[in-house]
Simulated assay, not measured.
Amino acid sequence: MRRALLILAVLVAGCGGEARQDADEPSGEFKVEVVRASFPRVQHIAENVELKLTVRNGEQDRSLSTVAVTVETKARGDDATLAFGQNQRGEGLADAGRPVWVLDEGPVGGDTAVVNTWLAGALGPGRERELVWKLVPSRPGTYEVSYRVMPGLTGKARAARGDTSGRFRVVIDDEPVPARVGEDGEVERGVEPGSSD
């Protein structure tokens, strides 16, 4: 409940003169689900990777105006959760958040006032939408990334039981992915330097 109120306060404060993203959010329970999810289990520093989630409006006769997805990297200890990072303890830090992945590009048109939540937008009955996050791993280690889909941003609309959430356990290797420069001058990742096709 506290989280829902915090999200609502951020939305109200950050919307300026534009229409609020939660303006048409209904109350009640609605069927939304994640039908496909992929994220490479083993990654390398500086490799381009994609997190992909396909969400569906499971309602048979009702459109949903604000389907949202939250992504969180499991925090260490009591730290707050971040979308693609973790907090680092230490004195003199203006911002304790440190990226595990650098977000190169989020889902198109999906930004919200909440830093770990993106919109899938309005979905008609039975409709699906794929959300893609383009990321670059920046810190080696083993991490757990969780996701969940919601039929709204404020908690007024709740997800019915079903495949609404999941998680990935990801290992980021500190060795960069092998690469070479091809004959056309383009970087070819996943190919050892000096090897032939």
Rank of each mutant, 00 (worst) to 15 (best):
R2T: 01
R2A: 07
R3S: 10
R3T: 10
L5S: 03
A13N: 02
E18L: 09
A19C: 01
D22L: 02
A23K: 10
D24H: 11
D24Q: 13
D24M: 08
E29D: 14
F30T: 11
K31Y: 10
V32K: 09
V32W: 08
E33M: 12
E33W: 01
V35M: 03
P40Y: 01
P40D: 02
R41A: 11
V42R: 12
Q43E: 12
N48G: 04
K52C: 07
T54K: 05
T54Q: 07
T54W: 01
T54I: 06
R56P: 02
G58E: 08
G58F: 02
G58C: 05
E59G: 10
L64V: 13
V67Y: 14
V67F: 14
A68Y: 02
A68D: 03
T70E: 12
T70Y: 00
V71G: 11
E72P: 00
K74F: 00
A75C: 01
D78V: 04
T81Q: 12
A83M: 11
F84C: 11
G85W: 10
G85F: 07
N87A: 12
L93R: 15
L93Y: 04
L93F: 05
A94Y: 07
V100Y: 03
W101G: 03
W101C: 01
E105T: 08
P107A: 05
P107K: 04
V108A: 11
G109K: 05
G110I: 04
V115G: 14
N116C: 10
T117Q: 14
W118V: 15
A120D: 12
A122V: 15
P125W: 04
G126H: 06
L131I: 11
W133N: 09
L135M: 01
P137A: 02
P137F: 02
P140C: 04
T142I: 05
V145W: 03
V145E: 04
S146V: 00
S146Y: 00
Y147S: 09
R148A: 10
R148S: 09
P151A: 12
G152C: 09
K156W: 02
K156S: 08
S165R: 14
S165T: 07
G166R: 04
R167A: 14
R167G: 09
F168V: 01
R169P: 00
V170F: 01
V171A: 12
V171Q: 11
V171G: 03
D173A: 09
D174W: 09
E175S: 06
V181C: 08
G182T: 07
E183N: 13
E183S: 14
E183A: 15
D184A: 11
D184H: 08
E186T: 08
E186R: 12
E188R: 14
V191E: 13
E192S: 11
G194N: 13
